[in-house]
Amino acid sequence: MENNGLIFSMLSALLDYPDQTLIAALDEIRAALAAHPSLPADTRSALIDLVDRLSARPLLDLQEDYVEIFDRGRATSLYLFEHVHGESRERGQAMVDLLAMYEAKGLFLGAGELPDYLPVFLEFLAHETPGQARALLGEIADISRQIATRLAERGTPYFAAVAALLPLAGEAPLAYANAALFDAATTCEIDGEALDREWQEEPVSFLGAQVPLSKNPEPIQFYEKRPSR
């Protein structure tokens, strides 16, 4: 079985809050993704498009885009348990259990890092055996497909980094032919009505958990791994 540890780390970097370290690594990431045999041709092409678009924009613009894309609703949140538990009390215990799984394998998170943040989860998978990484990635396949679909609908190339997790988990890839193309001149704006619809998304399963969300949930508290600006 192919060891995809390096690819998991690169996808983690692409999905994390952009910084100068990412910018410096984009050429290396592009070369690795373009040649990786575990990724279908459409997946590689979409990832290369994402990397090229990140390379073409100033860092400050990338950071503003990131906040706009990922911090404005549950549907595209990269905090996995928001898609399962919302802000219910069950989320706290799920966090504890996931953190324990990390620490049992020697991964200890820094201050401000939450274990259900997708880039953190991917970095954990990068240090797992290929079989275990594939199995755990399969556990979040429903969430990955949901997030990737919502990102594609908004026309952001970030959909590619999440959609790439599907073939790596042995799942059917996203239908790229139906994915919207990103227009760098048009930010992905969402009106209040659309956000209200996002709060009502049906929950999906992650690591065996499935908890119904309230029909009238409280606004989400977004936990930021990145430093305050």
Rank of each mutant, 00 (worst) to 15 (best):
V67N: 08
A24N: 15
R197T: 09
A25E: 10
L98M: 06
L151N: 04
L107V: 14
Q146L: 14
N3C: 03
A177M: 08
V67I: 15
L125K: 05
E87R: 02
E123V: 12
R229M: 12
A32S: 15
G138S: 12
L11Y: 00
L6H: 06
S9W: 06
E64F: 00
V96K: 01
H85S: 08
R72S: 06
R44I: 09
E128V: 09
H36M: 02
A35L: 12
T156S: 15
A185F: 09
P130N: 03
I220R: 00
S77K: 07
D19L: 07
L99S: 12
I143G: 05
H36D: 05
L137R: 05
E139W: 09
A25L: 06
P217K: 07
K215C: 11
G155Y: 12
H127I: 13
A169Q: 08
I140M: 10
F108D: 04
A100M: 06
A32K: 12
G112K: 06
D116R: 00
V211D: 04
D116F: 07
D196M: 10
K225R: 14
W199F: 14
T43D: 03
Q200S: 11
L174W: 10
F222I: 15
E193K: 09
Y158V: 11
E123M: 10
A133S: 05
G192A: 09
L80R: 01
E68I: 08
Q132S: 15
D97R: 04
V67M: 10
R53P: 15
E2F: 09
